[in-house]
Each structure stands twice: as C-alpha cells, then as structure tokens.
C-alpha cells in the first residue's frame, strides 16, 4: 500500500479550462473497484493536458489513494481537487493495467 505500481504514471493536469472534462465509472463494491476514465471531453482541462486516456484507472488524486472509496466518494474527491484554488493543477496517478 502506498507504493507506486510499476505500470503507473503520474499525470499533472493543469486547470486550463473551466471543467476537468472526464467521466469516471467504478469504485469500491462495484465490478470496477477503482475509478476508470470512460470519457474525455474535448476542450476540458484533461483533454488539453493530452496525457490522460480513456480506459486508464485512477490510483491516486493529489497523492490520495482511491482504493476502498465508493464511486461517489471518489467522484467527490476528484471534483474537490479540481475546484480548490490551493493548486492550479490536479495530479493523477493512473495505470493502463486494470
């Protein structure tokens, strides 16, 4: 726990647009236990960043683990990370391995 998985990638998404522009599915107690990116909207910050991809699984957001979090909790955490004015970016630790 807390160790980087070998296939993981840290992606820094600058808040370059008014929305983050991703859709996620999954969370604890579902078929997809970690949140997975299912859509990246054109024109959103994630799309502008160019490094997030559909199908990637989100392991951490700003260093906070997604493990054990139910869908709404994971979604809320990501929304708050985008909304806060403390940072001008959101750091995602993602993996292509599901």
């Amino acid at each position: 726990p807390g160790l980087l998985e070998p296939t993981s990638t840290l992606v820094r998404v600058a808040k370059s647009a008014s929305t983050l522009g991703i859709a996620i599915e999954g969370g604890a107690n579902t078929r997809q236990p970690l949140p997975r990116i299912v859509t990246i909207q054109r024109g959103g910050s994630a799309h502008n960043c160019g490094q997030l991809k559909v199908g990637q699984v989100i392991l951490e957001v700003n260093g906070v683990s997604m493990r054990g979090r139910e869908h709404r909790d994971a979604a809320r955490l990501i929304a708050e990370a985008f909304k806060t004015k403390e940072r001008d970016h959101v750091d995602f630790l993602v993996t292509d391995f599901n």
Partner: peptide
C-alpha cells in the same frame, strides 16, 4: 441458493 458471482455495475459521473 443464490450465488453472487459478480458485483453490480457502477454509475458514471461526469466531472
């Protein structure tokens, strides 16, 4: 007896 082989699907949230 009912077997639970799969977990339910998740909702999708746009962020």
């Amino acid at each position: 007896r009912e077997k639970r082989l799969t977990l339910p699907p998740s909702e999708i949230t746009l962020l």
